[in-house]
Write a protein that binds this DNA or RNA. Structure first.
Lengths: 249, 249
DNA sequence: GTTTATATTCAAAACTATTCACAGTCAATC
DNA sequence: GATTGACTGTGAATAGTTTTGAATATAAAC
């Protein structure tokens, strides 16, 4: 079985059940323990799921232990740096769309006191946006259990009634073929948000380049990529003709 | 059983009952005493609950006044009792609307495992609904900063596209003139939800009777009132002609 | 003081990471 | 066209780690 198919299968099972044991995955996917484990490690790196002792779960750990491993911290710093620079692009008084996801979440502190109106599809974002005193609207729709993102027909419909000056989006895969993300329903929402925005930005750390996910979102030229400068040269180079902003970490 | 699942199970029991003994947890969760204890220690560290001699209880709110604490607890019990009976009204497999607010929030644990589809305008509700594995939709709209309720034109518009078997609403004032609530924008939302629901229930503790708030919602006969039996007789009596369900605390 | 609950310790079991060998794939070379 | 060697993905074996339940010691309630 092809590795990408297998990973899709794993995700399918995990999404259905929220939590699965390794044994369940071995049975349902039909691969060896080693392979399942390796897939889980990769899927965790891609932030599609969280490994737990004995299996895997969708839910992100809510507790950020102070003893986070170095790699996670560095990744967070990278995200913060990207987020900070993305926020700089926003003019005072504008209406912006903030996609669900960890990188866009990091933008929130930098959006305060700018007289903005923020529309989001991320339940997690709301609390923090309110804390920073930002006027917040949320689109309607079905709540995706693992991420708290709003998806589905209703979400897309809600979006049709807004127009944005800027949209900021997370993305899982960036190649010359365009932007991709694992969940087709989320892809629809991202697509619509981009369509209704004067300018769109894709926030991506170095792990997202050359990756390809299941669901196609838009062609590369529909957004400006904001990434960190420590992104692998060879991966960014082919994209150079596009507006890509690199940010030092 | 996966440790993450087990901890979830423990939390569910605790949230439902407020206080549990170790023995109860051993029986319900099906793990050894040692394991339950270890989980409780971790959950306490995560501030999800408080361990007490012999078992565990929900995290106590940090109130300065112990008398205030007592009052809140008693009020919570009243609300829980009302919520529990309200939840009984729901048939398996139905679509329900859950209004933002503390009393409707208490219904959530009793709504689990009933194959329901819940639509809500309360941001706070979402997290808990997801934890109990309930399929959740949220209406769109502007986030009201104090309460996290969704209000405004967009919220009302979103609601027009749903039809409910049951709607459960909180209300601040109940008199013969009808239901009232302080915020006109919230009143609009409540109104629309009731209009789109086959049956509406208003959940009200004893403090809400004979009170009148700023914004009119609907006439009394548009909903069935669920209240506790310790509600002042003289206040409920005039409403007797209506369908009012009293619940013992 | 007795009873009951909690903390500590320890070995077995369950789970994870690491290593290795094997089979394919691909490109370069003969 | 076959051969070679580097590379990759897979599964099995093994070494290392965490989790678990029972036994025991300590502390708290009555």
């Amino acid at each position: 079985m092809l590795s990408i198919k297998r990973k899709e299968a794993i995700l399918h099972v995990v999404k259905k059940q929220d939590v699965v044991t390794i044994q369940q995955l071995i049975d349902e996917v039909g691969a060896s323990e080693s392979t399942i484990r390796r897939d889980l490690i990769e899927l965790e790196k891609e932030e599609q799921l969280t490994r737990v002792h004995g299996g895997a779960s969708l839910q992100k750990r809510r507790h950020d232990e102070p003893s986070m491993n170095e790699k996670t911290t560095r990744n967070k710093e990278e995200k913060q740096s990207i987020a900070k620079h993305a926020a700089k692009a926003v003019q005072v008084g504008s209406c912006i769309y903030l996609d669900a996801g960890s990188t866009t979440y990091e933008m929130i502190p930098y959006l305060a006191d700018r007289d903005l109106l923020v529309v989001t599809n991320g339940i997690q974002h709301v609390q923090t946006l309110m804390e920073y005193g930002i006027e917040t609207y949320i689109i309607g729709g079905k709540v995706k259990s693992q991420t708290g993102a709003l998806v589905g027909t209703k979400a897309v419909e809600s979006l049709r009634f807004y127009r944005f000056d800027y949209a900021f989006l997370g993305m899982n895969g960036i190649t010359l073929d365009g932007y991709t993300t694992p969940d087709p329903e989320e892809a629809n929402v991202k697509q619509t948000a981009m369509d209704n925005s004067a300018t769109s930005f894709v926030l991506a750390d170095h792990t997202k380049f050359d990756q390809i996910s299941f669901a196609y979102v838009q062609s590369l030229d529909k957004a400006i990529i904001i990434t960190s400068s420590n992104t692998n040269e060879t991966k960014v180079k082919p994209l150079e003709k596009l507006t890509t902003i690199e940010v030092s970490t």
